[in-house]
Amino acid sequence: MLRFLLNRVLQGAVLILIVSMIGFFVINLAPGGPLSQYAMTPGMSQADLDRIAAQMGLDRPLPVQYLDWLGNMLIGDWGNSYRDQSPVLDVVWRHMWATLLLMGTSTVISVALGTLVGVLGALKRYSIFDYMATVGAMIALSIPTFWFGLVAIFIFALELGWLPAGSMYTVGDQSLGDYLIHLIMPSIVLALVNVAIWSRYMRAATLDVIDQDYVRTAKAKGLPHLRVVSAHIVRNALIPMITLAGLQLPTIIGGALVTETVFTWPGLGRLFIDSLGYNDYPVIMGLLMFSAILTVIGNFLADVGVALADPRIRLG
């Protein structure tokens, strides 16, 4: 067990290091460069720009800049945002709560609904419900999220006026009810695709289990239908879903990107888009590292989770 942990920590560290290297150099290869924002300021001369570059250490060779950045990152200094000079970790942290709230709500909806639809579809395979669920999932997966979001805003915010069109709270209100009302539309729009994905996987996993001999044994010993389904079908079908959930963890950053933009939700996805627009390299690098770390953690949690749920699997 200790060996397994050490192994995984080492592997993760190497992976993150490689990601940071590739990420750092690729971002600096992109046209524009960190100074392009300053260059747009009226009256800025080349001499001014050179001075700023020297101040920020941008005149040094890239490998030196990288090592400098890496060394600082390891001691917890992820640099400062070019936009407002606040520390990158603070910026990421501030936006993370908005994303966690949105992603958390939508994940609860999509896992619960997706599991239910998937299991029912598999139990009643080729029934009308199953066909409708299949077609519904295809439609949900085919509709671009931004289009669905805009249509939802048009109907529920503009035409009916039931729900706010965007942002996380009404300035000056910020009560729990106000947060919830703002949460409804983006979380459902975000959940739509995930329900579709989750229900398809769950249906396939359930169908894998449903014809197993042990399900027949469970019926043969006179267990009620609900018990057979819960303890012997769903229980076993959920094991591969743990891996899927682990792989979904890093999509916290990218997964809600479009939804956050459409609903002007102040989360990580929008922070990423905005940072790209501003050439805010420290924040972009910070989000990249954050995403890499989440990937490593997600995989690790999935492996541990599967081992806990399935006695046939040993960690090592």
Partner: peptide, 28 residues
């Protein structure tokens, strides 16, 4: 009915199967 049949399986008729390796749920 299927529900009534549930109370027959077990106390009235029980069954053992051909494949001992797959007849038990591996996770319980």
């Amino acid at each position: 009915t299927e529900r009534k049949m549930t109370s027959v399986r077990g106390p009235k008729i029980a069954m053992i199967f051909q494949e001992p390796l797959t007849s038990l749920n591996p996770v319980h």
